[in-house]
Structures are given as C-alpha cells and as structure tokens.
Amino acid sequence: MKYALQYLRSAETICGLYDGSVPLAAFLKQYFQQHKKFGSKDRRYISQLCYSYYRLGRALTDLSFSERTRIALFLCLEEPGSWTEIITGDWLSQWDREAAKRFSFVREQYPSLSAETVFPCFDAISERFDKQPFVLSHFIQPDLFIRIRPGHEKTVRSQLAAADIAYREYPPNSLALPNASSIDKLLNIDQECVIQDLSSQRTGELLAKTESKTPLAVWDCCAASGGKSLLAWDTLHHPVQLTVSDLRASIIANLRKRFQAAGVQPRSIFTADLTQPVSLPQTFDLVICDAPCSGSGTWGRTPEQLFFFSREKILHYTGLQERITKNVLPYVKHNGYLLYITCSVFTAENEDIVARLEAGAMKTVDTVWLKGYSDRADSMFASLLQRMD
C-alpha cells in the first residue's frame, strides 16, 4: 500500500488524543470532520489501524505504537491484504488463517502476551465461557445480524440475493451478513427485519417458556433501543400488552418512532429511573430486565473497552443491577416471570445477581450462557426466573 506508513502516523496521532471517554466510532467521526483532508479510503484504513491497536487490550503496552500496531494487524487479519509495507519478513511466511495459530506465533516472539493481558478483569469472566477462544474472538470483527420479522421471509431473502449480499442462515429467521453490508436502503428496517445480534435474538428461546393461553402483560423495563420489545411482540404467539420504559427521554422518543415503523402498539411507554422505587398501576406476567451492564460480551464491536475498562466499573454496574431488580420485582405477578439479561461475561453481573434473586421469592426456570464467539456474534447471559411467593 502506497500510504501505509502515513496512515500509521495518522493513527498514532488519533490514538494519542483519544482517552476513551466517548465511543471510538464517535471520536473518529468527529476527528475526520475536523480534518477534511482525509478521503473515504484514507478514513477506512486509518480507522482499521486504530481499532486493531485497541484489540490488543493492555497487552504489550511497553512497545512503540508502530510495533504494537504491526502485531495487532497480524492478529486481526486472516491475510495481510494491503499491509505488507508494515508487516514484512518472517511474519508474512508465518501467516495462518486461524487466529489461534497467529496468536501462538506472536507469543513465541513476545512471551508476555496472553489472554489475561488482552482482556481486562480476565479472572472475573464466568467459568461457563470458554475463556481462550472468547478472548481470541476479539481479534475478529463480529458480523452484522438481522432477524426477519414474521411474514417477510421471502422478501428479505430475495432482496439480499438481488443485491448479491452473501449471508449465513441461523434457523428459523436469523441471518449473518458481512459487517460492512449496507442494507438501510435495501430493506425496510424494523418493518421487514430488525438489526439485532444473534445472541440477543436467542434470548427469545427463554421468552417462549413464558407462554400462556391468555394475553400476556409484558414490561420491558430497561428498553434501550427496544430490540427485546420487538422480539417479545414477534415471538409470543398470544396478544402482548406491552409496557415499555427507559431512564432516558431521548431513548423513549426514538422508541416511539421505531415502534411506529414496526407496527407495534405499546400499551404504555414512559421514562423511569429504576434505581429508585417506582409506583406503577399494575403487575405483569413477564418483566424483561435487559439490565445496564459492562457490555463485556460486546467488546469485539467496541475494542477500545479492552484498553480503557477498569475493575471498578464492575462494582458500578452490579450496584445498578441490584437496585433495578429489587425495584421491579414487586411488579412481577405471583407465578409470573422475570427475564434477566446482560451482555456481560462477568460472574458478578450474571450468576451472582441471579443468586440474590433466588435468595428471595424467585426460582430459576432456565439459564443460558450465549457463547457468540463461535458465530462471530456477541456473548450474553440470560436467566428466566419465576416468582413463587
């Protein structure tokens, strides 16, 4: 590549300015808006270098930026592509498409490299996740996943075929697309399909265990983008009386627009700070609590967290989770369900929170550790509990 070394210097400048206080994607967008000399190809290559640099986490931080980035590229790419000006000599002859083999080769050169130094708080990861392949998955950009909504199966597949966009299928209605796929103008997002990670979609398997023969009163209490609300609407075969809340007014405004596009009509939608006690006029057959968390199962998409995340943040999130679950439990009906979900792999945010719920009035029906790293997807935790008092 003609400008590889220039791109490397630009990436070093950017990473020197970046402090992790905002998502890397947002920082890069702002930086390139202020430095308009970079064309679209320049921005793509420089961004690739920055993201690769952070995928090494806190490993090998004693090395220079250029050396560390050379190692990161070697670990992140299945083949050298355009980067042979940076990655040269013996390293090219040692290239292998398997990330584990590339990782082993680098460890021979740099023995201090390990899964523990790449992933922060490695010891806090649940034993139910296979730690080595999980950590190695962070050198691979996850795929883009969509869930086809009922009745649009034929349309979505035919549109993708017409645009020559390759995909993998996960029955019954999940598709994995290359991460850079542009589908916004090709498909009617939210009407025909929902952009939603594969593991997030698979929480629907627990939703199905709450089925009854009567309409379900469902509260999605930490709705965020509303993906779980749409999943419940489409997954539960009996009418859903949907209540939706979130802390942020801006999120609620976006949810209203999204639900309108999706043809979903919630019974109630409101803002609520669930770290404080709330007063609601009803109880629910099912409360979905997709709790705020570290997001440690999604850092393949935001690898800057591998570099900037600190252990203190786990305590912050477990505090939120404890308060939120305590405040929503009174609104779960007798024999009703709480579906507790995080996109974290840390025991403290998952099994430990469920253990506290079990110490009260809740009984676990089923728990799943969604190991997305085998499918180029996020990793998540979900536990379905039933109220027995």
Rank of each mutant, 00 (worst) to 15 (best):
K213T: 07
V287C: 00
A100H: 13
I46G: 05
Y3F: 13
I183D: 11
G360W: 11
R149M: 12
A208L: 13
R258Y: 08
A272G: 01
A163H: 07
A261K: 13
L216I: 03
V194Q: 10
H138M: 09
R58Q: 04
K37F: 03
F381I: 13
E349P: 03
L5Q: 15
A208P: 07
L113P: 01
S225R: 11
A253Q: 15
T84P: 13
A262V: 05
T235A: 03
D273C: 07
D220V: 02
F129A: 12
G360Q: 12
E12M: 01
G20C: 15
I183T: 07
Y3L: 14
L8N: 02
L56M: 10
E79H: 14
P303F: 02
V287H: 10
L338M: 06
I125L: 05
A223F: 06
E98S: 10
R311H: 11
F145W: 01
L8D: 03
Y53L: 09
D184P: 04
L144Y: 06
A166L: 05
K101M: 14
K333Q: 05
C221G: 00
S212M: 13
A249S: 10
G319F: 12
Q30I: 01
A224W: 05
E153P: 00
I252Q: 10
V135A: 04
T367V: 12
R168C: 04
A361S: 13
V156K: 06
T203R: 01
V194R: 10
F308M: 04
F103H: 08
L385V: 12
Y373R: 10
R58S: 04
V194D: 01
A249P: 01
L60V: 04
M1P: 12
D290Q: 09
Q276A: 01
A359Q: 14
D123N: 07
N335T: 09
A11Y: 09
Q109N: 09
R376Y: 04
E351R: 00
W299Y: 02
L384Y: 07
K37Q: 12
Q159P: 06
A348H: 08
S47W: 05
